[in-house]
Simulated scan of single mutants.
Amino acid sequence: MSRTTPGRRSVTRALSGLALALLSVVAGGLAACGGQDPAPGPASSRSATASASPPAGQAGETKLHMIDNGGHRLAFYVTRGNGSTIVLDSGGGEYSTQWKDIASELHAATGATIITYDRSGLGKSDVVPGPWKVEGAVSDLKAGLDQLGVAKDVTLVSHSQAGEIANYFAKDHPKMLSGAVLIDANLPQFFTDQEIPRLVAATQPEVDAAKKDPEKPENRQLIATAEGFAAAHKAFHGVKWPDAVPVTVMVSEKTPFAASPEGAQRWRDAAAAFVKVAPNRTLVTAAGTSHEIPTDRPDLVLKAVEDLYASHH
């Protein structure tokens, strides 16, 4: 399949997060653009923990833990290691499988515990009715870490829409983080009063189409993320990353706005502005990549995470 879909797909991800991959499903582009495995349905078991690989005690084993947060369950996948933890948080509409080419290699390279998870309504995690709210996503991540016994020394690796979760999580729980890698991520500096209306207008045709069949899962997700987008991102624009938490910001060469030179430049400028705030922030351009850096060039992601991890271990 041609690579004509990713530009539109990536713009929508930057806009509404969960809407991106789901719109690509409608366009028939998910397999070509994201490389994702088919999403399993919501888990039906009420057990707290289910084995996702070999029996407990084997090196490099990954286990599925079903975490309860306020009555809905979320699927967390854990490969146990030493006392430090690397959390891989997927881009909008992506599942934990986004990290299939990265997680095991990170575990082998660092010895750290590796955690991936499916956000609500995706993969094995339960659907949460109503509009998608970043505060709920932060609460889900924090509940998962709490119930898994993770309280400190976390390296957070966040792609695209997960950058919003990372910024709020860092603001609320800075002492839990030893560092972060933000991969072509949504950053507060991008969502200005001028940019937000442009983004809302760009996605409105897809939202209107989705409302004609609101029970379809991908449409439900799109509608949920579009509701209240402007107000939510006006608030996001004011979020401040804590100065004490080091961060590497990786920007794709093409950006989510490959078809718009002006939009692409605003995306790059926002990343540069974010990095300039503190001396412990590093800007990296991932040469030759689209917005899908984790699948385009997992080696670059591995290097960025390993370098940041080594700097504080």
Score class of each variant (00 low, 15 high):
Gly111Ile: 03
Glu135His: 04
Lys133Thr: 14
Val134Tyr: 06
Ala143Ile: 01
Gly121Ile: 03
Ala162Tyr: 10
Leu156Asn: 09
Ser158Met: 08
Val127Asn: 12
Asn167Gly: 00
Asp146Ser: 09
His159Ser: 02
Val128Arg: 15
Gly136Val: 05
Lys142Gly: 08
Ser125Ala: 04
Gly121Ala: 01
Ala170Ser: 06
Thr116Tyr: 08
Thr110Lys: 00
Ser158Trp: 01
Ile114Val: 06
Lys171Leu: 07
Asp118Gln: 07
Ala103Leu: 02
Val154Gln: 07
Ser158Pro: 05
Asp126Ile: 11
Ser125Tyr: 03
Ala103Cys: 01
Lys152Gln: 13
Leu106Tyr: 08
Asp126Met: 06
Val128Tyr: 14
Thr155Gly: 04
Ser120Met: 13
Ala151Tyr: 14
Gly130His: 11
Val128Cys: 08
Val157Ile: 02
Ala109Thr: 12
Gly111Ala: 01
Val154Gly: 11
Gln147Leu: 02
Gly163Phe: 01
Asp153Arg: 11
Gly149Cys: 09
Gly121Val: 04
Tyr117His: 11
Gly149Phe: 07
Tyr168Cys: 12
Thr116Val: 09
Ala137Ile: 12
Ala108Val: 02
Ala143Phe: 02
Tyr117Phe: 07
Ala109Lys: 10
Asp146Val: 05
Ser120Pro: 15
Val154Cys: 10
Asp146Glu: 13
Glu105Ser: 13
Asp153Thr: 13
Ile115Ala: 05
Ala103Glu: 08
Val157Pro: 06
Glu105Met: 10
Glu105Phe: 08
Val157Gly: 01
Phe169Pro: 07
Trp132Cys: 14
Ala108Leu: 07
Val150Ile: 15
Val157Tyr: 00
Val154Tyr: 05
Gly130Cys: 03
Asp172Lys: 10
Leu148Asn: 07
Gly130Tyr: 04
Leu141Lys: 08
His173Glu: 07
Leu122Gly: 14
Leu148Val: 01
Ile102Cys: 06
Ile115Gly: 09
Leu145Ser: 04
Arg119Ala: 00
Ala162Ile: 00
Glu164Lys: 07
Tyr168Met: 09
Val157Arg: 05
Lys142Phe: 10
Leu145Phe: 08
His173Phe: 08
Gly163Gln: 00
Ser104His: 14
Phe169Tyr: 15
